[in-house]
């Protein structure tokens, strides 16, 4: 993204809107930018498109507490004004949380964001010790292979999980907190990890709580 003002928006994708697919989310954000009358930049060519770029996609059904997109504006408008006008025309569950301009030379969100933090709320009364043991055993095994559309992916768990998973429990549910490093293979899905560890499906709601940039070993938020 060059020529123009690159605005970074942090927003949520929560509640019922966690059911949106990535494409649906993209379209919803584009439409919000048009409703807000932002001076967005448009690509050249037969089908002019808004110059907007997103971070790593969330699967359908997974919520996000801090998701990001970059929008190129042709005119400078103070970031908090943009944020206010976007908020006024966006559903609560997709609302922007903060906006800020970033340098046009920064790498794209999709390339820069390599660390994802998740909370997985497990329902169905699985004792936290069982979960802990199952995860430990899987980590000791060292790899996890997944099958998707006939393709097998093998994740090296030591690399994919830069932090030890945490299991916490309160009265009625158990939460697994995971930190995942996203690589060329894509991202290890937390629900897949827990399912594989337990050996069966569990009803769970998944929330991506944070997305971080790994800046030579220092993790920071993109905003």
């Amino acid at each position: 993204m060059a020529e123009g003002f690159r605005l970074r928006v942090c927003h949520r994708k929560t509640g019922r809107l966690r059911y949106l697919s990535h494409l649906e989310l993209v379209r919803a954000c584009e439409r919000a930018a048009r409703r807000a009358h932002l001076p967005y930049a448009v690509s050249q060519g037969f089908t002019p498109r808004m110059r907007i770029a997103f971070g790593p996609a969330l699967p359908v059904g997974t919520a996000g507490e801090r998701e990001y997109f970059d929008l190129l504006l042709t005119r400078y408008i103070p970031a908090d004004e943009v944020c206010a006008s976007l908020t006024a025309v966006t559903a609560y569950d997709l609302a922007p949380l903060s906006c800020s301009y970033v340098s046009g030379r920064e790498p794209s969100l999709a390339a820069a964001l390599t660390i994802a933090c998740y909370d997985l709320d497990v329902k169905g009364g699985i004792p936290p010790e069982d979960l802990r043991h199952a995860l430990d055993a899987l980590l000791r095994a060292g790899t996890l292979s997944t099958e998707h559309k006939g393709k097998t992916k093998v994740f090296d768990l030591a690399a994919a999980l830069p932090k030890e998973p945490e299991v916490r429990s309160s009265e009625d549910h158990t939460t697994v907190r995971l930190t995942v490093r996203m690589g060329e293979q894509g991202s290890l899905r937390p629900d897949v990890l827990v399912r594989t560890a337990l050996g069966h499906d569990v009803p769970a709601t998944v929330t991506r709580t944070d997305l971080l940039i790994d800046d030579k070993g220092v993790w920071r938020r993109p905003l």
């Binding site: 019922r16 809107l17 059911y19 649906e24 919803a28 059904g61 025309v89 966006t90 559903a91 569950d93």
Partner: peptide, 10 residues
């Protein structure tokens, strides 16, 4: 396609 059933559109 669960978004068919969730309402909450603009």
């Amino acid at each position: 396609r669960p978004s068919r059933y969730i309402d909450r559109e603009w």
